[in-house]
Design a protein around this nucleic acid. Structure first.
Length: 462
DNA sequence: GGAACTCGCCAC
DNA sequence: AAACGTGGCGAGTTCC
């Protein structure tokens, strides 16, 4: 068989890293402006809130029981102590254990225990996370009002990037309150505005480039098709769903986060079943009774709907998802499945994996790692190339706008308002023209979505 | 008193 | 048979 010469070499990979390091170093030197005064004020404010919560906890019977065991060593931040208190002294059955076999005290576990004081502990954890991991890091790492996060290209097994001091790649966004508090601290330069350019579903597009699964390609190319909605129909057994209707969109979201993505990462129906039954608020033991769970599009409760379709318990639901999974890989995405099996076989034969971008993954890998590394790495390399080219053009054309960071599939720009349209156009051109010209293996058009923040306003989503 | 580990939790 | 990929980081704990 003749080699289809679309794959890059190790030398190409080296060049990408070399150019990438330089481009990222320039972004590091620019830095991100922070609102120091806000950070200090907010830290004080959070400290007062945390202290109030701590006092409230210390005023309870629960705390006195804790103190009875640990005396002067009692510490409400100690999960070790909390675990002993709940699972040894109070003899509560742990819902799950940590890797070392202790009863877990994470958010999910605490939420299942009917002790009101645990809500206060969780609230304290959330506030101290924001204060200690983010605001405190910003003020500690800042110099003249700018932080300069490092972007590393030499630390990650998949040849993705990482970021540290401070980590720019894990600033809260999902939780609205944490997002507001942390991102309020990050500002554009005076007269500028922040903008983000996100690749849309980048990893899935790259996965499709690797496996060339016609069904997956169709889902990505055809705007009228919707993979997550189709999976929601199958999982929740509806003939028709419309993503524009809120409750339908909720089921779509559940299918996406509770089935499709985990499956792509190598998860299996057993975990999907736990996640999804929890999502629709149905119990994981016993027979389901009428009137349980969320209200569904057809006006029935989830349990009624499922019972009508022959699913009468959590075990039935798990069995259903087992069939959905089987259909997912052996019918719907059978070419993707075949590619995954082939990846594993190739690795077993050769002892390493080669990415389309020229990188070699070697060392011992588990099955899921084998299937994920090339996709994750190559996806990031699309971003890195775009970042390098933007940086070059920015310097050539002497933009006042500055690249300031990158979050795996998203580029963050501190943009001058007069240039912002041009920045976006330039990025689109790179992605639509240069990238597929450089890498012929990109057989599905990539796209970006752009978010613009207001002039002189922080990085807060309305 | 510091290194290494555990746990939890933030992002993609 | 088993079963979710990649990171960084802070606080608590344990080890030396």
């Amino acid at each position: 068989m003749t080699m289809n010469k679309i794959e890059a070499t190790t030398a190409d990979a080296y060049k990408l890293i070399h150019d990438g390091v330089l481009a990222l170093a320039r972004a590091e030197r620019q830095g991100i402006r922070i609102d120091l005064e806000y950070c200090e004020k907010k830290k004080h404010h959070l400290t007062r809130q945390i202290n109030r919560l701590q006092k409230k906890i210390q005023d309870t019977k629960f705390y006195r029981r804790w103190e009875h065991i640990y005396g002067a060593k009692t510490n409400v931040y100690s999960n070790h102590q909390l675990s002993n208190l709940l699972y040894r002294h109070m003899k509560i059955e742990p819902m799950k254990t940590t890797v070392t076999g202790r009863g877990s005290t994470d958010e999910e576990a605490l939420n299942r225990i009917d002790v009101p004081e645990l809500k206060l502990i969780l609230q304290m954890r959330k506030l101290s996370k924001v204060r200690d991991t983010y605001l405190d890091a910003f003020t500690r790492e800042q110099h003249d009002g700018y932080i300069h996060p490092s972007f590393n290209l030499h630390t990650v097994r998949t040849f993705r990037s990482s970021s540290d001091r401070p980590n720019f790649q894990n600033i809260p966004i999902r939780d609205k309150e944490s997002m507001r508090i942390c991102r309020r601290a990050l500002l554009p330069r005076p007269g500028h505005q922040l903008m983000e350019m996100d690749f849309s579903a980048l990893e899935v597009h790259i996965a499709a480039c690797y496996c060339k699964d016609p069904v997956l390609i169709h889902y990505l190319k055809d705007k009228n098709s919707d993979m997550h909605l189709d999976m929601a129909k199958q999982i929740f057994m509806f003939d028709e769903l419309d993503r524009k209707i809120p409750i339908h969109a909720v089921l779509r979201q559940a299918a996406k986060n509770g089935f499709v993505f985990p499956q792509f990462y190598g998860d299996y129906y057993g975990n999907n079943s736990l996640y999804l039954s929890d999502w629709v608020k149905l119990p994981q033991e016993g027979r389901w009774k009428k009137g349980m769970g969320l209200l569904l599009p057809d006006g029935d409760y989830t349990s009624d709907h499922f019972i009508n379709h022959g699913i009468k318990s959590f075990d039935d639901f798990t069995e259903h998802l087992k069939q959905v999974e089987d259909d997912f890989w052996n019918r719907r995405f059978k070419a993707y499945h075949k590619w995954r099996l082939n990846q594993v076989n190739q690795y077993r034969k050769k002892g390493y994996l080669k990415m389309f971008t020229g990188f070699t993954c070697s060392g011992t890998m588990r099955r899921n790692e084998i299937m994920n590394y090339p996709i994750q790495g190559s996806a990031f390399h699309c971003l890195l190339f775009t970042f390098i080219r933007l940086d070059e053009i920015m310097r050539e054309e002497k933009w006042d706008s500055k690249l300031i960071g990158q979050i795996h599939d998203c580029i963050v720009v501190d943009a001058h308002p007069d240039e912002i349209d041009h920045v976006e156009e330039t990025a689109r051109k790179i992605i639509k023209e240069e990238l597929p010209a450089k890498w012929k293996w990109i057989i599905i058009p990539l796209d970006i979505s752009v978010d613009r923040y207001e002039v002189d306003s922080p990085w807060v989503i309305k």
